[in-house]
């Protein structure tokens, strides 16, 4: 079945507002923020059709969109789980045990770094420093930071998210209450 790529009128209004931040003729400047919106709208990833649509909205060529989408690590060019668990692996987090967090998640979810669970709920993705080094180890899910992680906290987070139907996206606050 052909999927229709079209922003809703409300989303289109948000996109138009983004474009208005830049001088006339410089609408390409809105590409990064608009790609974030597209990723959030279109199931958490950017298919080539989704990128073509963004090119059309911004009146630029598709290649200008592809080359940007493939450069930045926050854009997914393949389908991902509803909850992408982005675990920081850089120095300060590593010093505080991020490897144990990743191993624990891999075991718990039965997948490896970079993979998605069969039910499409979780993806594990190790990432570089997220500016949360003083509260390491940490992971990001959607736009929310989960800090000072312990294995027990990771368990609670996974249980909280396991049956959550809502996709985690960067463009919204969707933090799970861990208390």
């Amino acid at each position: 079945m052909e999927k229709k790529y079209q922003f809703s009128p409300e989303t289109m209004a948000v996109v138009q507002k983004m474009i208005s931040r830049y001088p006339n003729g410089k609408q390409k400047s809105a590409l990064l923020p608009v790609l974030h919106v597209a990723q959030a709208e279109f199931d958490g990833w950017l298919s080539s059709e989704a990128m073509d649509y963004v090119a059309e909205v911004l009146q630029i060529t598709p290649i200008e969109v592809y080359e940007v989408a493939s450069f930045y690590s926050m854009y997914n060019l393949k389908p991902v789980g509803k909850c992408v668990l982005e675990v920081c692996r850089t120095s300060s987090c590593w010093l505080m045990g991020s490897e144990d967090i990743v191993k624990h998640l891999e075991k718990k979810l039965g997948i490896k770094d970079g993979e998605t669970t069969a039910d499409g709920q979780f993806t594990i993705k190790t990432v570089e420093c997220l500016g949360s080094c003083g509260t390491a180890p940490m992971l990001q899910c959607g736009s929310d930071f989960y800090e000072n992680l312990t294995l027990e906290k990771v368990d609670r987070l996974v249980e909280n998210l396991r049956n959550d139907a809502e996709r985690r996206v960067y463009t919204k606050d969707q933090k799970v209450n861990m208390d």
Binding site: L32, F71, V127
Partner: peptide, 24 residues
């Protein structure tokens, strides 16, 4: 303006490229 995950965009000219909607 929000970026999209690229340390290099902290370098000032890469940042300007990114702000123009390009690769960093």
């Amino acid at each position: 303006q929000v970026g999209a995950g690229a340390y290099i965009c902290g370098e000032e000219t890469a940042l300007l490229e990114s702000l123009e909607g390009k690769r960093g």
